[in-house]
């Protein structure tokens, strides 16, 4: 909340409290995905496991989300350096790429479905669907946060303040997290066939 809620400045943790809280939240999410990954491996170990190729669209979406992270990174540095247009345009690009990611994921699911991998079929396919759904759900949350950032960017007057840097940093930490999470999932699916 307000700055005055920070009980004291006798700092005993150099990480800002909101960032720290966000890292903790991310740790929780990591546990959730770790649990599902290990469930996947346990189920795979039990046999009767269908092998199939990942949809090509997933590689496209990988490129899309990677680019979005790059542009968000650029957005943050531009903001800190007071470059207004670069900040606004890169934020817009990030949002567009974020939404595009969901579309490419959707296309990926359709590709899987059309090649006969059904949600209800062999657990090998079900797991891929569930993990990617859950990831997409978190991306959706990320897009909502980006939307708030965009709203601030377009409605508030351009001013590089500590508080606004913090907000943008929080947004980008989360967004980079969902990006890294996707890379992890992709590698996991490729390596755990």
């Amino acid at each position: 909340m307000e700055v005055s809620m920070q009980a004291n400045k006798a700092k005993n943790n150099s990480v800002h409290q909101y960032k720290f809280a966000l890292y903790l939240g991310i740790a929780g999410l990591v546990m959730m995905f770790a649990a599902l990954s290990s469930a996947y491996m346990v189920r795979q170990g039990a046999g009767n496991w269908l092998e199939f190729r990942l949809p090509n669209m997933f590689y496209v979406s990988t490129v899309v989300i990677l680019l979005s992270s790059v542009s968000l990174r650029y957005c943050l540095t531009s903001f800190k350096n007071g470059k207004k247009t670069a900040y606004i345009s890169s934020l817009l690009i990030t949002c567009v790429l974020g939404v595009a990611f969901l579309f490419t994921q959707y296309a990926g699911w359709m590709e899987m479905y059309n090649s006969g991998i059904d949600l209800k079929g062999n657990p090998a396919g079900s797991f891929v669907y569930v993990l990617t759904f859950l990831h997409a759900f978190h991306v959706l949350g990320g897009i909502a946060v980006l939307g708030v950032a965009l709203y601030h960017c377009l409605t508030l007057s351009f001013k590089v303040s500590k508080q606004r840097i913090l907000r943008l940093e929080l947004t980008s930490i989360y967004w980079h997290f969902v990006d890294i999470l996707w890379i992890y999932l992709l590698l996991f699916f490729i390596l755990q066939r």
Binding site: G28, L29, A35, A39, K120, S126
Partner: peptide, 23 residues
């Protein structure tokens, strides 16, 4: 923080089994 998300993961698969026909 480290264990409740795992429960949610378990519940998520349960929900899929319950309503979306997975096994």
């Amino acid at each position: 923080l480290l264990s409740f998300p795992v429960l949610v993961a378990g519940f998520l698969l349960l929900m899929f089994d319950r309503s979306l026909g997975t096994s």
